[in-house]
Amino acid sequence: MDFRLTEEQRMIAETAYRIGDEFGLDYWREKDAKKEFPKELWQAVCDAGLCGVALPEEYGGAGSGMLEMALIVENLAASGGGATLGQLFMINPIFGGVTISKHGTDKMKEELLPRLIKGDLNFCMALTEARAGSNSLELKTFAEADGDGWRLNGEKIWITAVDQAEKMLVIARTKKVEEVQKRTDGLSMFMIDVKRDGLTYHPIDKVGTKTLSSCTVFFDDVRIEPEELVGTLHGGWKELLDTLNTERIVTTAGLVGAGSLALRVAVDYANERKVFGNRPVGSYQGIQFPLAQAKAEIECARLMNYKAAAQFDAGEPFGSEANAAKLIAAQAVADATERAMQAMGGMGYATESHLERLWRDARLFRFAPVSEEMILNFIAVHDLGMPRSY
């Protein structure tokens, strides 16, 4: 078992960190305050070829793997972006790139992947519903057959970056629950235009991750064309898992980077701040131990995430590893940001310290994109062989 990165992987990680560092913490503080999409940073990521690292070479990607993508996200997050950096990769290389490259038509791949990789096309995914929540099999949004296409009606919630997206991956029922033998049947994926008659959306005000909007989306008799079907009609659930499970990897990578950043900010402050006899705050175990504990937990999440990514790249099952990594990372970074703020005292609460943004942003990932309770359900049932509780 070799834990060493290749020279190419180290170069990729270093490039990502350098790009993120060129923008830095002040850039993200400004974008957060203005609730603006970080378009300049994202374009720099795309210009450097990092957006398409795991996408096919024939469409302009690098043809590498999910491990390389995790390294990029982690280092961009650690250099200033924090946990929300992972969302940039969710909406584009994952929701758009992975979905299309694995299950899209040749026409979709030729038209959309090069634009995604260059940075002139953004995506979003409409899955979550208010009355379905984590139980995606209970979603009610329905695409009814209409000639050679469909008519879409329903409502989605907590949809990320709709206002920046040109394309939306929509998951809808094409057969109602009562018409199928298994609840996993009758779901389909569609890639539609955001600007389309009958599609409207409204922003949700929220605590953190303000650089990427969250919206409620309404579908009122929205026309879907036949060529907009992604994958198999009525068989989209299994295909969707390719998107959802890789989403876990980039989420964890963003969290690991955010935790590392929070610790760096806190340690720098604690080593300089002098108290009681002109000793640095960082010399006291009451400051050291909580930060050291957070460091240990973040390292464990990092290694588990690398294992999940490596297994994905090798074509091996990786769901258990991806879920465990995300669970530990979200909890560890919640602790790391909280302990880092505590170590800095009042300055940890000041906007200028940047920790309050990292703290606010990281909190989302205790329950999104999958809650820790649902991950524990998965571990209990799939990894421990215990009875299903839901």
Rank of each mutant, 00 (worst) to 15 (best):
E155Q: 12
D220L: 00
K206H: 10
C124G: 01
E179V: 12
R264D: 13
D146W: 03
N122Q: 10
L364W: 06
L127P: 00
D106R: 04
G49M: 07
I91P: 02
L291I: 06
A340H: 00
I249H: 01
G24T: 04
G236H: 09
G61W: 08
Q87W: 06
W359M: 11
I204F: 09
R183L: 13
I100S: 00
T15L: 15
T232K: 12
T243C: 12
R29I: 03
L25D: 14
E239F: 05
G80T: 03
L88T: 09
L261P: 13
A294F: 01
F95A: 12
A70V: 06
F142R: 07
S389G: 02
T251F: 03
L212W: 04
L71N: 01
E228N: 10
L88G: 10
E178M: 04
F95M: 08
D242Q: 00
H202Y: 15
L88W: 09
L358D: 00
G80Y: 02
A13I: 01
F289A: 11
H354F: 13
E58C: 10
F367V: 00
I159F: 07
S389Y: 04
V265S: 04
S353G: 03
T174K: 01
V194A: 02
R196C: 03
A33T: 07
F378V: 01
E225Y: 13
E299F: 04
W150D: 03
Y284S: 15
T337Q: 09
A262S: 14
E58A: 10
R18C: 01
K118M: 10
A143M: 03
L255W: 07
K118E: 15
G60T: 08
T216Y: 08
G119Q: 08
Y17D: 08
S260T: 15
E74I: 02
D242S: 03
T105Q: 05
R273V: 13
E227S: 14
V222C: 14
E36C: 13
G154R: 08
